Computed example of a mutant assay.
Amino acid sequence: MKTVTMRVDDSIYDMIKLAADGQKRNLSNFIEFATMQYLTSSQFVENSEMNEIMNDKELVKNLMNGFDDLKNGDYNIV
């Protein structure tokens, strides 16, 4: 297990604390819970969905072309 130190604005802290209290969790447990909820719902896809994406040859080609454009400096991510 790792220890993480972070700085947050007082208003953000108050929101996190209120949410943790509302779920009857301590602060650290709520931050871990909220992070896992975000990561698993926003950042990952099921294997079947990823297989469907990877089998769409035109989509993969377009994504790779976009990635090449980005590497070549044709676009900026803001």
Rank of each mutant, 00 (worst) to 15 (best):
M1I: 11
K2C: 12
K2M: 04
V4D: 13
M6Y: 14
V8P: 03
D9S: 13
I12F: 04
D14T: 04
D14M: 07
I16Q: 09
I16C: 00
K17P: 07
L18P: 07
A20T: 11
A20V: 05
A20M: 03
A20D: 03
G22Y: 03
G22C: 03
Q23P: 06
R25W: 02
N26W: 08
S28D: 15
S28L: 01
S28I: 08
N29I: 10
N29H: 12
F30N: 04
I31Y: 04
T35A: 14
T35M: 14
Q37T: 10
Y38C: 01
Y38I: 01
S41R: 13
S41A: 14
S41P: 02
S42K: 14
Q43S: 14
F44H: 08
F44W: 10
E46Q: 12
M50G: 07
E52A: 02
I53E: 08
M54T: 05
N55P: 09
D56L: 03
E58R: 04
E58K: 00
L59A: 11
V60M: 03
N62W: 01
M64Y: 02
N65K: 05
G66F: 11
F67Y: 05
F67C: 01
F67P: 01
L70F: 02
N72I: 00
N76D: 08
I77C: 01
V78T: 01
